[in-house]
Design a protein around this nucleic acid. Structure first.
Length: 489
RNA sequence: GCGGAAGUAGCUCACCUGGUAGAGCGACAGCUUCCCAAGCUGUAGGUAGCGGGUUCGAGUCCCGUCUUCCGCUCCA
């Protein structure tokens, strides 16, 4: 455990030291749970995005992508349930330091009453609670807790703090004349990208002539005010999601849920990360919108944690948007129902969602790639840190290194550089000993280094050095580009 | 949010019981080098997280504050 923690710390340090991830606004002491991607981090992140985007939209002919705005009409969040369901009032017990959701605390109390046979009183307490919650009457709720002498299960006392509201969503003012008085000006920064897909469901379906089943994919930023946000980029206030909402016939959700579970796991393992680093975790307690849900968990340095969620969202979202917007969110299905011999007709589609945290995927990839190797021989102590990134995700694909910076070697190296840089990211370096340069490339995960030596002048060959094995082979200069392209495709 | 620990050069750390900050690595420039870090020379870089107090004098003692880490707590 201490070892894993050290490893996690080492990964975080490495990310900063080698230009992958910096704390946000660091010169001002940072901003909690916000991070910036540096020169290599942004490349790696982009490569992950591209890999996801291509495998979703290009490999599935019935999935298209969109890029919806972060700002959305405030009613969106009423329809989605975020305004009502996720602004939970909380209360802390001063003795046990334990924090409760006020509704959970009172509901547990009413369950106790029921168990004691006091059904009437249990109902009365719940009714009072609902009325007070609806009014956001926190003082009244606290009074309700105190009057009923509701105790903390841990400390057994009723020494409570005032009730506070924890807002999940960030909000800001909309419009050029700012007036905090005017609630109508309030817009939220989206807490999930999914709603941008749902509100565009019909736009995409009609303009793209999409037939069910079909999917809409999106990559974008989302924002959540986490109560505690820690663990590096695992839980950030500003993060990026890669989501796909798959629209299906009602009644087929079970089949498609299983399909996407399998499909998504295949995507993960296709990167070459071993399957035993992943596991499914089925949700027992389902969110308000789902009829089945699971996580794909990854074995991060701090243990197995959620990396991706696959949710069967029913028609909850589209149905609510239909209700709140008064616009039909229906699809007319012309396919023939074998049971009746007639078209299926109009319905609100059901939805299977796959939602992966891009930043978490980044953390998964880099923490799996991070390797400390002991290369000591009896004569000499030696070690290296190498990022064994999948070549297609590596920020830099090829380093081109003249063995010495004279005798015409840099010129040959430059020619290779000019040839290759049109096709993938290359790095030219003539400083320091060759060993140092190899190790620097290992540290950022560059899969290939070619070295130009004196033999190159004679027979137009170079050595290509493989990152993971450190093995070298001599190849014709003309084959370098194809060799790298084959590895990153 | 609570409890504990820590904040000195890019990184890892030193400065013992207060007397005006140092090393290694790294970076940069050059030399050397025919294939895996630690060969040579030189250069740059710190008002010791920030603010206040005690003192003739504070990195070193005290208080506050910020940040980070560990544990607890919460999570769609």
């Amino acid at each position: 455990m201490a070892n894993d923690s050290n490893r996690f710390q080492a990964i975080i340090s490495h990310c900063k030291e080698y230009g992958f991830i910096f704390p946000s606004s660091e010169i001002y002491d940072g901003l909690q749970a916000v991070y910036d991607y540096g020169q290599w981090g942004s490349e790696l992140k982009k490569n992950i995005k591209d890999y996801w985007w291509d495998s979703m939209t290009r490999m599935h002919e019935n999935i298209v992508g969109i890029d919806a705005a972060i700002f959305m009409h405030p009613t969106t969040w009423k329809a989605s349930g975020h305004v009502d369901n996720f602004n939970d009032p909380m209360i802390d017990n001063k003795d046990s330091k334990k924090r409760y959701r006020v509704d959970h605390l009172i509901e547990a109390f009413s369950d106790e009453l029921r168990a004691a046979g006091q059904n009437d009183k249990a109902d009365a307490v719940l009714a009072d609670m609902d009325a007070l919650l609806a009014k956001d009457d926190f003082a009244g709720l606290k009074k309700l807790i105190e009057e009923n002498k509701i105790k903390c299960a841990v400390s057994g006392t009723y020494n409570w703090t005032d009730i506070r509201q924890f807002n999940l969503m960030f909000s800001t003012e909309f419009g050029s004349t700012v007036s905090s008085e005017d609630a109508d000006n309030k817009v939220y920064l989206r807490p999930e990208t999914a709603q941008g897909i749902f509100v565009n469901f019909l736009n995409v379906q009609k303009s793209g002539r999409m037939k069910i089943p079909f999917g809409i994919a999106q990559i974008g930023k989302a924002f959540r005010n986490e109560i505690v946000a820690r663990q590096f980029i695992f839980r950030m206030r500003e993060f990026e999601q890669m989501e796909m909402q798959f629209f299906i016939q009602p009644g087929t959700q079970k089949k498609w849920y299983e399909f996407w579970k399998e499909e998504r796991l295949k995507w993960h393992t296709s990167l070459g990360i071993p399957a035993d680093k992943y596991r499914f975790h089925d949700h027992i307690k389902l969110a308000h919108y789902a009829d089945a849900a699971c996580d794909i968990e990854f074995e991060f340095p701090m243990g197995f944690k959620e990396l991706e969620g696959i949710h069967s969202r029913t028609d909850f979202d589209l149905r609510n948007h239909q209700e709140y917007s008064k616009k039909k969110q229906q699809y007319f299905d012309n396919d023939i129902d074998p049971a009746t011999g007639k078209p299926y007709g109009n319905y609100i589609p059901y939805v299977i969602e796959t939602s992966i945290g891009l930043d978490r995927m980044f953390l998964a990839v880099i923490s799996h790639a991070y390797t400390e190797e002991d290369l000591s021989t009896p004569e000499k102590k030696d070690d290296r840190v190498v990022l064994k990134l999948p070549p297609r995700l590596a920020p830099m694909k090829l380093a081109i290194l003249p063995l010495v910076k004279k005798d015409g070697l840099p010129e040959i190296a430059r020619q290779i550089m000019d040839e290759c840089k049109l096709h993938f990211r290359c790095f030219y370096e003539e400083k320091d000993t060759i060993g140092k340069r190899y190790r620097r490339m290992d540290a950022i995960g560059t899969p290939f280094c070619v070295t130009v030596d004196h033999q190159s002048k004679e027979d137009n060959t170079v050595t290509i050095r493989h990152r993971d094995s450190m093995k070298q082979e001599r190849v014709p200069i003309t084959s370098v580009k194809e060799l790298v392209l084959n590895a990153i495709r």
